Amino acid sequence: MTLASRLAAFKADFEAGKPPYNVPRSVVDTMHRATAELRASGQHQRALKAGDKAPSFELTDAEGRIVRSEDLLAQGPLVVSFYRGVWCPHCNMDLQELQAILPRIRELGANLVAISPQVASNSRKSMRDNKLAFPVLSDPHNAVAAAFGVRFALPDYLVDLYKSLKNDLAAFNGDDSWTLPMPGRFIIGQDGVIAYAEVDPDYTVRPEPELLLAPLAALK
């Protein structure tokens, strides 16, 4: 089953209010509204693109160790995947599919990291629950996400909805800014230039991980 089909099946069940989600239609409509407004803002079109210079970063992994992009790029190309957090089912499916192609990414001489605003304990849960063998990095205040152009602030009505669903991003992230990254994947060459970029304001849509392989092979 492809990632797209997994995501579509989950979305259909969720939006139909099937167990265990049992969400009312008003919740679905509010999420649709927020996604439509984010797309209409054009922010995804202002994110970094292929040919742009990637910002360097220094973040901590799930165990508190410092991870520097320049150190990873010294080893080979770098795949960076931004995701929202362990609370997001779509993100977890995405991480699982990235894990499935991790051996092929490494065969092409590249490293892979995932970046989210969540605190280290939630990154550890991400790694444990999704059986990940690549680093999950914490991005306080979504600062690196902002540098890549994928950070956005949740509108007040969506903050209220998340709170009503007991999805407290301030607690998950150790930050009360109520910002998130748009899902985005980037391949950075050893020269620091972005070779591939895919950003979508719809958190239910993710590109197939296999799309990373051809650009990585072209960098060898």
Rank of each mutant, 00 (worst) to 15 (best):
M1C: 13
M1L: 14
T2S: 15
L3Y: 06
L3S: 11
A4M: 09
D13Y: 00
F14P: 01
E15Y: 05
A16C: 06
A16Y: 11
G17Q: 05
G17E: 04
G17I: 07
Y21Q: 13
V23F: 10
V23W: 10
P24G: 05
P24A: 02
R25E: 08
R25N: 04
V27N: 04
D29R: 00
T30P: 01
M31S: 00
R33W: 07
A36N: 14
R39C: 03
A40K: 12
A40D: 14
G42R: 04
H44W: 08
L48V: 11
L48E: 01
K49E: 14
K53P: 09
P55K: 09
S56C: 12
F57N: 10
E58K: 15
L59C: 15
T60A: 14
E63F: 15
E63S: 15
G64E: 13
I66G: 08
V67R: 03
R68D: 11
S69G: 09
Q75A: 11
Q75P: 01
Q75N: 07
P77M: 04
P77L: 02
L78P: 00
V79N: 00
Y83L: 00
V86K: 00
V86S: 06
C88D: 02
C88W: 01
P89H: 01
H90Y: 15
C91P: 11
N92S: 12
I101A: 04
L102N: 00
L102Q: 05
L102F: 03
R104E: 10
R104P: 04
I105N: 05
R106W: 01
A110G: 07
I115H: 04
Q118I: 13
V119C: 05
A120N: 08
S121M: 09
S123Q: 14
S123D: 10
M127Q: 11
M127G: 02
R128H: 05
D129K: 04
D129C: 00
D129S: 12
N130S: 02
N130P: 09
K131D: 05
K131C: 03
L132T: 07
F134T: 00
F134M: 02
L137A: 04
D139H: 11
P140A: 11
P140L: 13
A143V: 11
A143W: 01
V144E: 03
A145R: 05
A146D: 14
F148H: 03
G149P: 01
D156S: 10
Y157L: 07
V159Y: 04
V159R: 14
L161M: 15
Y162D: 11
K163W: 09
S164G: 15
S164K: 15
L165W: 12
L165D: 09
K166I: 08
N167V: 13
D168R: 11
D168P: 10
D168C: 07
L169S: 01
F172I: 10
F172Y: 08
N173W: 09
G174R: 06
W178K: 05
T179Q: 10
T179M: 02
L180S: 06
P183N: 03
G184Q: 06
G184H: 06
R185F: 12
I187F: 01
Q190S: 13
Q190N: 10
G192N: 08
V193K: 14
A195L: 04
Y196T: 05
A197F: 02
E198D: 15
V199H: 08
D200Y: 13
P201N: 13
P201V: 14
L216E: 03
A218W: 00
L219R: 00
K220E: 00
